[in-house]
Write a protein that binds this DNA or RNA. Structure first.
Lengths: 147, 147
DNA sequence: GCCATATAGTTGTTTATACAACTATCCAAA
DNA sequence: TTTGGATAGTTGTATAAACAACTATATGGC
């Protein structure tokens, strides 16, 4: 049993996610410096739409691991910023399909470049195989808890 | 340059911190099931006070990587829950020293046990040396960005 | 067709974070 | 001893997340 106990600091770091918080803040600062007027959360929604445009809010929930009210309000704010449009589905009128505007399409390259830059800074001095291990462990953690 | 490009999914996972979010949610659910009426953020403040009681709000900021308004409001809420008390410092009247109440002291064992349990579930199937690599990488990331 | 149930999305409330602007106190240099 | 800058904390405002309660639409059994 004692073998299964985590050290305090270790435990705290994993739970509070200091590293990913730091990454997100760094990226947010880059967005702000570039006057993008975009939050990381808004970016993370656009991210899924860049992969596939015109998906429903429910699909955005699943993809971004957020609940429905969170997506409702993120889409509200993205609409205010004229980055997306809600289009009621013809086949199922309960659904809103979310489409990128031209403005949002133009943001993709610049923001992905800043995201890449941020990760390079974050992972400086870490060998590729250690990055791989870390990524795999985090994926397992996610899979262990997602169910 | 192409060598330095991250894959999209990898990039997204690191930035959005899916794993640590999932851990925090699982722990929150355990708190709720145990009727602890305590948020993870509140717990993370108590965590530092369990290590050292009677520190200032500024020290809580440094320890928990939050800004001053965040700590002000977390301490507000912890005071409402009668888990901490603000005591004005005698030596420097600008400072509030934050002290745990008896109620908060009693929460330590139970919540740390739940946190341990959560991490065991999260890291199930991951070998100790891979956990170590992951932890070290995340520490480097934090150090790279904290400055 | 009718109704129970499921699904998609919205709204209300509480808690938390980021940033800017503010007050109060301390300290050190003139 | 005064004054100006630094430090500790608070308040206002915007964005976001979790949870519960709600509306609207779809669907499958009868």
């Amino acid at each position: 049993m004692a073998n299964n106990q985590f050290k305090r600091g270790e435990l705290y770091s994993f739970i509070t996610g200091k590293a990913s918080t730091a990454i997100a803040r760094r990226l947010q600062k880059k967005f702000n410096s570039a006057n993008l007027n975009l939050t990381i959360e808004q970016w993370s929604v656009l991210y899924h739409l860049w992969k596939q445009d015109g998906i429903s809010q429910q699909e955005l929930c699943n993809a971004s691991y957020r609940d429905k009210p969170s997506i409702t309000r993120l889409v509200d704010n993205l609409e205010k910023l004229q980055l997306v449009k809600r289009v009621s589905s013809e086949s199922d009128r309960r659904m809103n399909l979310i489409y990128l505007t031209g403005r949002a399409q133009k943001l993709q390259d610049q923001t992905m470049e800043l995201a890449n830059e941020t990760l390079l800074e974050a992972l400086e001095g870490v060998s590729p195989d250690r990055i791989d291990v870390c990524r795999e462990v985090l994926q397992i953690v996610y899979d262990n808890l997602a169910g």
